[in-house]
Design a protein around this nucleic acid. Structure first.
Lengths: 249, 249
DNA sequence: TTTACGTAGGGCACTGAGTGCCATACCCTC
DNA sequence: GAGGGTATGGCACTCAGTGCCCTACGTAAA
C-alpha cells in the first residue's frame, strides 16, 4: 500500500526545502498529491499520505491549502483574480461580449495544461466532494460575471435579472464547450469548442448583430451567412445590411 | 421513451416510504437542530448537541441524515423526486414552459412554509458549508431540467447546448425571483415573484407570445431573429422570409 | 405461550479532516 | 553576534462520519 516512501523527511529537516527556486512546498504538495490521487484515488489518499510523500510536515499542508480539495484546483484562485482584474478594466463594448471574453480566461487556463486538466476532470467526475468543490468555484466565476453585468445594466429596470440569467447562460455554455474538449481527452482546440458554445449565447441576446458586416467575423461557411438582428430594427436596415454583406464579396 | 403515467400516482410512487406519516425521530431531529442553529449558529452546534436535545442516540442522527448539512434541507430530496416525476409525465407543450412549470414546484415548496424558508435562507447565507450544500442541491435541479430538455431537443443539432443554457437560465431566473421573496421576509406572493423572473427567460427564447403583463415585460429589442440562408438565395426570398417571421408573431 | 426473526435504535471505538498552540530553524538587518 | 520576522514541524485536540455489535420490541409461526 504505502510502499513508496523514500523518507525524504530527515533530509528535508537538514537541508530545508529543495533548492528549486520557483517551486517550493506548494508545488511539491501538488505533485505528491496528484501522484497518489491517480493511483489510489482521492478519497483513499489521506493528507498524511501526501505530506509523507512530499517529505514535509502535515501542518504545512494546511498552511498552503485550506482543505484537501483545494490541492486539486491550485490555479483557480489566480484565475478568479485575473477575471476580476479584466472586468474592472473593461468598461466599453457589449457587456455580454465582455463577459464571454472573461470566460475565455478560464478556457485558456485549462488549455495551458491539457494533460493536467483532463486528469483532474476524470478525477472530479467520480469524487463527490470534488464535484462539490468545483461547483463552488464555478459559482464564484458566475458571481463575478453577474456582478459586472449588474453594473453595466444599472439603468435597466430588469438589469439585475438580466445579469443573473446571462451570467448563468455564459457559464453554462462555456462549461459545455469546455467539457466537450475535456471528454475528447484534451485533443484539439479548447478555445474553438468554447467559442462555438458561446456563440449560441451571444446569438440569443443579439450581441453578434454587427458581425455580418464587419470583416472580423465572416460567415462561418463559404456558402452560408448567419444574420442576427434586433427584432425592432427597421426592415430597410436589415435589407441594407444583407446587401452590404453580399456586395462585399 | 417517457411513457405517460398518472401524475399523482407517479408522485406517490417516487415518494416511497412516506416520511410525514411515521418519522417522529426525523422530525424531532429537525426540530432540535433548528432550535440550536438559530441560537448558537450552525457551526457552533455539534451533532452531539442535537441528539442530546432530541434525546436520542448519536448514531441515529446519521441514520436519518447522511450529513449535518442535510438536516437543514429536509424536503429537497422529495421535491427533486416530484420534479422528476412531473417531467416524466410532461411530454407535450413548449419544452421551456414545461421546465418553468417544473421550477415552480420548488417555489411551491418554499412558499409552503415561509417562516422556515426565510430562517433557512438567512442561515444558509452566512454558513459556507451550507452554501456549498445548497449549490449541490441547485445543481441537481438544474441537471434534472437539462436532462429533460436534452430529450426534447433530441433532433436539434445544438440541442444539448440549448438544453444546458436554458436549464441554467431557468434556474438562475427562478432563484432570482425566489431570493427576492426571501429577502422580503417571505411576505407577499412567492409564485408571483418567480413568475416575473421566469417571464424574462420565456421571452428571451420566444415561448411567450405577446406578453399580457405590460409592466414587467422587457423591451421588445430583447427579441432577436436568427436567419440562416444559402448565400446564393435571391434577395426577394430573404426579405420574404424575414417579413414572414416578423408577421407571424 | 414460546420461539425465531426482522428491524429500529443505542453504544462504542475508530478514521481522518481541520485547527490552535508552541517550539525550532532559517534569514535578514543592525 | 544579537534580535526580530518568517517558515516549518510537532503535538494535541475537536468533530464529522462510519463500522460493528448489542439490545429492545413487535410479529409471525410452532
Amino acid at each position: 500500500m504505502t510502499d513508496v516512501r523514500d523518507e525524504g523527511k530527515a533530509t528535508a529537516a537538514v537541508s530545508g526545502p529543495e533548492p528549486s527556486d520557483k517551486a517550493p512546498m506548494r508545488e511539491a504538495l501538488i505533485e505528491a498529491a496528484f501522484q497518489l490521487f491517480l493511483v489510489h484515488g482521492f478519497e483513499r489518499t489521506t493528507v498524511d499520505d501526501i505530506v509523507a510523500r512530499a517529505g514535509v510536515g502535515r501542518r504545512s499542508f494546511f498552511r498552503y491549502f485550506p482543505s484537501k480539495e483545494d490541492v486539486v484546483f491550485p490555479e483557480h484562485e489566480r484565475c478568479l483574480a485575473e477575471m476580476s482584474a479584466f472586468l474592472t478594466t473593461s468598461t466599453a463594448g457589449e457587456p455580454l461580449d465582455v463577459v464571454c471574453d472573461a470566460a475565455r480566461l478560464v478556457t485558456r487556463m485549462y488549455a495551458a495544461n491539457p494533460e493536467f486538466s483532463v486528469q483532474r476532470y476524470r478525477l472530479t467526475r467520480e469524487v463527490p466532494s470534488l464535484r462539490g468543490y468545483e461547483l463552488s468555484v464555478v459559482h464564484r466565476y458566475e458571481r463575478t460575471l453577474a456582478h459586472y453585468l449588474r453594473q453595466r445594466y444599472a439603468g435597466d429596470h430588469v438589469g439585475a435579472l438580466r445579469a443573473e440569467v446571462q451570467a448563468a447562460a455564459v457559464v453554462a455554455a462555456h462549461n459545455n464547450g469546455l467539457r466537450t474538449w475535456l471528454r475528447g481527452g484534451g485533443q484539439g482546440d479548447a478555445a474553438k469548442a468554447v467559442d462555438q458554445s458561446l456563440t449560441f449565447v451571444r446569438q440569443t441576446w443579439g450581441s453578434l448583430g454587427e458581425s455580418a458586416e464587419s470583416g472580423t467575423a465572416p460567415a462561418p461557411e463559404d456558402d452560408v451567412i448567419v444574420m442576427v438582428a434586433p427584432r425592432s430594427v427597421p426592415m430597410w436596415r436589415v435589407v441594407q445590411k444583407i446587401e452590404k454583406t453580399l456586395g462585399g464579396d
